[in-house]
Amino acid sequence: MNRLAYLRASSLEEAKQALALPGSIALAGGTTVVDLAKLGAMKPDLLVDIGGLAGLDAVRVDAGRLHIGALARMADVSRNADVLRLAPAIAESIERAASGQIRNMATIGGNILQRTRCAYFRDASTYAACNRRTPGSGCAAIGGVTPNHAILGATDACMATYPGDLAIVLAALDATVHTDMRDVALVDLFAEAGSGRETVLADDEIITAVSVAADAGAARSSYLKLRDRQSYEFAAVSVALAVDLTGNGPQIRVAVGGVATKPWRLPSVEAVLRAGPPTRARIAEAAATAAGDARSTPDNHFKIRLLTRTLERALLTALDLS
């Protein structure tokens, strides 16, 4: 890790002042920042510890929405009774993410902002070419080892996978990210892969909370995660569903992880599912559209098949057809 400065912010204003400086970055749980700083994939001059900011770690229900403070620890959120009742997939995705230790450390805001696991991004000393690290420098992953890379959203600029679990569920639930400056839809939070920016947030903009509508779809939300190892591994493919059975025909929202450059909604799948009763045939048809825009390498080609099957299974299970 490069020699750097540390500052513990005691108020949002202090934090914003510090984050306005070039080279500064917010530190909360530390599970991403400390890791990447040790690798040299990130070389901050100043770590602004926002972990002590008061009032940003609460989970509350307000006006039909479930609000989760940005500094709430993942472990606490996954055990929160309101979360379990109103949006169980949030808890489910957290339980499947990382280890017990990391879930005790990582915050909700930090977890959403976690960085890709692309080996070429992480090894700055060998691979100068990485559009995520250095915009315009190219992409060393092209022609490299890419079984974990994205099949959706991948471009010549970047095919690194968004690694998180929680944000996939939040995407399915149409979550809103609240910052000290504005509200942003979660799916709009992430910048175009390889654009040189991870998110649309300003440097000194601080996520304060994330919220989802405590609606019927959230109450019947689910998260299915597939990976080689039984635990402590990122998703090969994951599927988040929000299924609302209260209206005329099910309203189903679908997001997928492990396969895309950012949390990925699948409107084409949702459209097929909206077109009629949820029969097995319709589910198969919907799942088959999921990878329509996929772009694969020989290494990650298996994910196309895996995505389709995982989606189909998740839908069948959610609709009690399995």
Partner: peptide, 11 residues
């Protein structure tokens, strides 16, 4: 150890 996978307890 995040990418060279050895078994965890759950495996």
């Amino acid at each position: 150890l995040g990418d060279y996978l050895i078994p965890t307890n759950a495996d």
